[in-house]
Amino acid sequence: MAAGGTIDALGQFTLHPALGRIGAAVHFSQSNLFMVIAGVLVLLLLWLGMRPRALVPGRLQAAAELSYETVMSMCVETIGPEGRRFFPFIFTLFFFILLGNLLGVWPYFFTFTSHIAVTLAMAVFVVVMVTVVALRLHGLHFFSYFMPKGVPIALAPLLIPIEILSYLSRIISLSVRLFANMMAGHAMLEVFGAFVVMLGGAGLLGIVPAGVSLAVNVALIGFEILVAALQAYVFAILTCIYLHDAVHLH
């Protein structure tokens, strides 16, 4: 917050132990607490939504079925018929990130997707999983992925390192995209929020710019909701595209 005339835009990302002494003893942070909350919210949606098991769904059941069918169609349309096998993973991944992003927009809530450690771990897991899937499906033939068909053999020394680099840079692009989007949005919210407090307290002249900052923050909240949904979708759809490459090799 606006402490001592400076703006602490990054303090919101500091990790604290959650759940009192027990949490502190096992290094369970508020970041992990929000992971649990995000997961439980989706579980509640599925459990409460599907409890009526109605032939004609009500609102909550329609929402639960929509969440299922959206991710399922994303898997099947992007990966192909084999995508059904990866559906539970993509579902977990998509809703983990989506709820993490969306919960973070709520005041005082923590955004665990704004931590590079979390997004990097997910990206590393995705790329390792994709590679394992490709190796299990195609064996050593998988390495032909780095040497596209029809390319002159003379270009191989140049092309193969580039392909390997681009393959590995998926980890960076996937993790940094999500992390940077979430962190930048929340830092900007914090900065403009601090402007409101500082300018609002600076007397009559500051009222107008404080109001403008508040308006910007309102717009930013809307933008953040868009980014939250968009980045979760991007992460999931890119994972699907990587899986498609692994299953079909180009």
Partner: peptide, 12 residues
């Protein structure tokens, strides 16, 4: 907490 959040995150 920075590293443990990843461990707990993986478990969760």
């Amino acid at each position: 907490l920075t590293t443990y959040q990843v461990v707990w995150g993986a478990v969760i």
